[in-house]
Amino acid sequence: MSRLKQITNSANQKGRKLLIPYLVAGDPNKETTIDLMHALVSNGADIIELGIPFSDPSSDGEVIQSSIERSLRKGTSLNDTLDIVANFRARNEVTPIVLMGYLNPVEIMGIDNFVRRAQKDGVDGVLMVDMPPAEAGVLNAKLKEANVDSIFLVAPTTTQERVKSILNMTSGYVYYVSLKGVTGASITDVDEVERNVSALRTSTDLPIVVGFGIKDGKSAKEMARVSDGVIVGSALVNKIASLTSHEKLSAEDIKNSTNIIKEIREELDLDNEVVDEECL
């Protein structure tokens, strides 16, 4: 069974909501990214989405754009991103890693090379933001052969017919985009999210997680109530951004910047305990 399947199955059994932090590989630097990833796991992350830096991130808002720009100034490449995963795996065999990014770096590395390395380095899933299912055939087939999951976005604008074609290609989990816009905006219509996630639920057994616009424990809880979990990107990246001014990072710095994930975990588990008691 894949790492993603193990984690999502076990969360489902325990009624635990999935908590998926996103951070950009190489911001503030490669070594710190690895430390941050381990800290995120200790703070309650179930899965980590690791952003591949790309010069033209047209689906990202300012916070993630800036993080990517900082990472690119350090020269972080797709190769480095994969190295980070391999290094993380040396100390953690269980937490799934999903690479999220744009297609051009993968194309230039070559799809075969990329898939081979992703498998070898311990990548569990791949989400290419600018590669809709209609263009995903080749990469999708090769990832499947390598037992790496393909994750796609479903947006509020996605039509019913498209949902089908997206789900046909999706494994691991479904990433529901909570709003029209880019990463880091604010969710305005919780009811719409609830309606759309419920509709999705009738077409798939995969976990459905909600991302874009989750800022804190409160918004995470709201979204987790109607789904299987949440992705927290810009809010975490914003905390990491404050590290860049530090000359040398202390264990305290790492702890402070990832604390938001601990807070969100605690909020999410409050509900969980209530459920557990009811079950008893």
Partner: peptide, 20 residues
């Protein structure tokens, strides 16, 4: 019909924009 000129072209945008 899918916007390809040989291997080029196509639709490579985020899901939010696909419907538009």
């Amino acid at each position: 019909v899918r916007g390809h000129f040989g291997p080029y072209g196509g639709v490579y945008v985020g899901e939010t924009l696909i419907a538009a």
